[in-house]
């Protein structure tokens, strides 16, 4: 049964990389069910991330957000800050797709704080870029400028010309 779980996860990932998101979702749901049977929280967390990602490409941003929230919840339980940061970034982008810029900014800010804690300059730069955009969308150009400046500073530091 444990091997079946891993096989389902791998099949889900393969379908995903082939762009077959409906099939990917079915396998990741099966993987999730088996992870729950075993109480395997790490595998459960991976399944939620994979399900969130697949739903983005199915255009079901609302469903993706719910899966990413489960990922976030489990990453905190598992004390995995890198995954927590990634979940916040995914949620920020998903709420941008849902045109909810306030909530997008909340998650991008959470991502920024964790990236700073982890001294992840690339993550910090991306968070600042996203926050600049979110504040522009919310009609707060002064705050947007602060983050755009920070984004420029980090991009120069890490040599990202684009």
């Amino acid at each position: 049964r444990a091997a079946q779980g891993r096989a389902c996860g791998n099949l889900g990932n393969t379908h995903y990389l082939l762009g077959s998101f409906v099939e990917a979702t079915a396998f990741h749901k099966e993987r999730l069910a088996i992870a729950k049977e075993f109480g395997d929280k790490a595998a459960e967390r991976r399944a939620y991330s994979n399900l969130g990602n697949a739903h983005i490409f199915l255009g079901r941003f609302d469903v993706a957000a719910e899966y990413y929230k489960k990922t976030l919840q489990l990453s905190r339980q598992l004390k995995d800050q890198a995954v927590e940061a990634q979940a916040c970034y995914s949620l920020g982008n998903t709420y941008t797709l849902l045109q909810d810029h306030e909530r997008a900014a909340e998650y991008h800010l959470r991502h920024l704080l964790i990236a700073q804690e982890l001294a992840d300059r690339v993550g910090e730069g991306r968070a600042c870029w996203s926050l600049g955009n979110a504040y522009v969308s919310m009609g707060s150009p002064a705050q947007a400028l602060t983050f755009a400046k920070k984004h420029l500073e980090i991009s120069q530091e890490i040599g990202d010309r684009s």
Binding site: Y16, S49, I56, R126
Partner: peptide, 26 residues
């Protein structure tokens, strides 16, 4: 409006491009 819209789309699009190849492996 158009310029701001493009800026917004750009950062999400970059994320989605990365996401296409992002799988959590077993």
């Amino acid at each position: 409006g158009q310029r701001l819209h493009l800026m917004q789309v750009d950062s999400v699009q970059r994320w989605m491009e990365d996401l296409k190849l992002m799988t959590e492996c077993e």
